Computed example of a mutant assay.
Amino acid sequence: MKIRGIHHVAIICSDYERSKKFYTELLGLEIVQEVYRQERDSYKLDLRVGGVYQIELFSFPDPKKRPTRPEAAGLRHLAFSVDDVVQAVQYIQSAGIETEEIRRDPYTTKRFVFFQDPDGLPIELYEK
Results as ranks from 00 to 15, higher is better:
residue 71 E to T: 15
residue 86 V to N: 13
residue 103 R to H: 12
residue 66 R to M: 05
residue 3 I to W: 04
residue 104 R to A: 09
residue 77 H to F: 11
residue 40 R to L: 13
residue 12 I to M: 07
residue 100 E to F: 11
residue 24 T to Q: 03
residue 55 I to K: 08
residue 73 A to M: 14
residue 2 K to F: 10
residue 16 Y to T: 02
residue 57 L to Y: 00
residue 22 F to S: 03
residue 26 L to M: 11
residue 89 V to R: 02
residue 55 I to S: 08
residue 81 S to W: 07
residue 19 S to M: 01
residue 24 T to A: 04
residue 89 V to L: 10
residue 3 I to L: 12
residue 120 G to Q: 08
residue 121 L to R: 05
residue 84 D to K: 06
residue 51 G to E: 03
residue 93 Q to T: 13
residue 109 T to H: 15
residue 119 D to S: 02
residue 59 S to Q: 00
residue 62 D to Y: 05
residue 128 K to M: 10
residue 95 A to R: 13
residue 122 P to N: 15
residue 104 R to W: 14
residue 4 R to N: 14
residue 20 K to L: 02
residue 113 V to S: 06
residue 56 E to T: 10
residue 115 F to K: 00
residue 76 R to K: 11
residue 114 F to L: 13
residue 61 P to L: 01
residue 16 Y to M: 11
residue 106 P to S: 15
residue 91 Y to V: 08
residue 1 M to L: 11
residue 36 Y to Q: 03
residue 34 E to D: 06
residue 96 G to S: 08
residue 52 V to G: 07
residue 79 A to W: 01
residue 20 K to V: 00
residue 58 F to D: 00
residue 42 S to I: 05
residue 45 L to H: 00
residue 15 D to Q: 07
residue 50 G to L: 10
residue 89 V to Y: 04
residue 58 F to V: 04
residue 103 R to T: 11
residue 118 P to K: 03
residue 71 E to F: 14
residue 102 I to M: 11
residue 5 G to N: 04
residue 23 Y to K: 11
residue 19 S to C: 09
residue 35 V to P: 00
residue 123 I to C: 07
residue 104 R to L: 13
residue 50 G to Q: 05
residue 31 I to R: 06
residue 123 I to T: 04
residue 81 S to A: 12
residue 97 I to L: 05
residue 32 V to I: 15
residue 96 G to C: 09
residue 69 R to E: 10
residue 38 Q to R: 12
residue 84 D to Q: 09
residue 7 H to R: 09
residue 64 K to A: 09
residue 116 Q to H: 15
